[in-house]
Amino acid sequence: MSKLDQILILDPPSDLRFKGPFTDVVTANLKLKNPSDRRVCFKVKTTAPRRYCVRPNSGVIDPGAAVNISVMLQPFDYDPNEKSKHKFMVQTIFIPSNVSDNDTVWKDAKPEDLMDSKLRCVFELPSE
């Protein structure tokens, strides 16, 4: 499987940290920066879609621009023994110059055109 390197710069680059207690919504911010001179389409995917609310969960980033994404972990009963195994993936693709519609970009995307980055979730508890 051929893989392109992710063009976007992710901040944080690999871990999304959520601070407990998890009795209320906990938000982690993820910044995506497009350092290239081409427009990029992105999509956020997760292994636990029911546990998170992600805004925006897809979109377009202009050359040199950045997007701030809010990843909201929904309240749940935290078990101290639970280590999050949740993961996120940011999937991106360059927008061809002859395409204006984002849905078409994804529909026509070839696997070798896709770039992705994976992030893992880290649950942090306040010290007891």
């Binding site: 956020v44 995917k45 997760t46 998170y52 805004r55 969960n57 990843v71 909201m72 929904q74 996120f88």
Partner: peptide
Amino acid sequence: ALSEDEFHDAVSES
């Protein structure tokens, strides 16, 4: 390595 099948589109509404 995780297989991509484990990933689903994130939702924007809770």
